[in-house]
Design a protein around this nucleic acid. Structure first.
Lengths: 142, 142
DNA sequence: TAATATTGTAATTTTTAAGATTACAACATC
DNA sequence: GATGTTGTAATCTTAAAAATTACAATATTA
């Protein structure tokens, strides 16, 4: 029923790492740039690490991409970071009456269009890569 | 950043009105069937009325469709009932740093894919009509 | 090896938005 | 005018996201 800011935070983080990864990028630096808490960033980065997208050095700190930006889709990032929330991102009233013929079937009835909407979003997410975002970013800077 | 349950509530209400509209359907009856509060229903119905989808009798109570179910899309319902939340249904961290080159551009950068996702959802919503939902509902009942 | 800087993670608190509730005026019918 | 309904504003409750606190685990370096 909700799509959190985790994906935008993760993409922001990955762009910084892709662009400035030669320097040591810590969770505090990314927290500064994103305007959010370093612990949130560490959790996100941990998930990106588990998904095989990032390398992170514990202790010494610093992160680097493990995959070419061309091969990192928004969908991969989103899925690594917030896997549940797309299925069910459209809210459904949770307690319809079982005794009403409509109430007892409304969930099943709406599941078809809702799944198509989810699939449509997933499709767009799969079309965009980190490389494209970086390219657009650089075009913005002239 | 969120898509509320308003749309599913509105569709549920419209199906009941379409099927049982010959009897007097009050906000209390729909509240019973949906498992939510009658005031919520009244607000939803008021918006559907403003959008020209419903007729409602104040005082005496009861509602009826003003448009043929074939001509009522999920998108029209969604738009009548929760017009804001689709633009921005994907959360973006709100306070990126202005002094960071990435932070200052991340919103503009993500707006392109996000708008495409919104458009994709809108497209699916536009393909479904109330008539189709009712037809599927009746097929469920054999 | 001690000092320092960082990640990893659990537990708790704060904030925010949705939804529920209360209250009552406006309106229609009998 | 008694009853039942919609319309709407104001407030309260609840649930989820995000922030915060705390600290163990790990690596570096002096």
């Amino acid at each position: 029923m909700k799509i959190s800011t985790k994906c935008s935070l993760a993409l922001h983080s990955l762009i910084i790492i892709a662009l400035f990864g030669s320097k040591k990028i810590t969770s505090d630096i990314i927290a500064q740039s994103t305007g959010c808490n370093p612990v949130i960033i560490r959790n996100l980065m941990g998930r990106l690490k588990k998904a095989g997208i990032l390398n992170i050095q514990r202790g010494t700190g610093g992160a680097s991409l493990r995959i070419d930006p061309k091969d990192i889709t928004i969908w991969a990032v989103y899925n690594a970071v917030d896997p549940k929330s797309l299925s069910g991102f459209i809210g459904v009233h949770p307690n319809p009456s079982n005794t009403c013929p409509v109430g007892s079937k409304i969930h099943a009835l709406l599941s078809v269009p809702h799944q198509k909407m989810e699939e449509a979003v997933r499709q767009v997410m799969s079309e965009y890569t980190l490389a494209e975002l970086i390219q657009e970013f650089q075009q913005m800077n002239g």
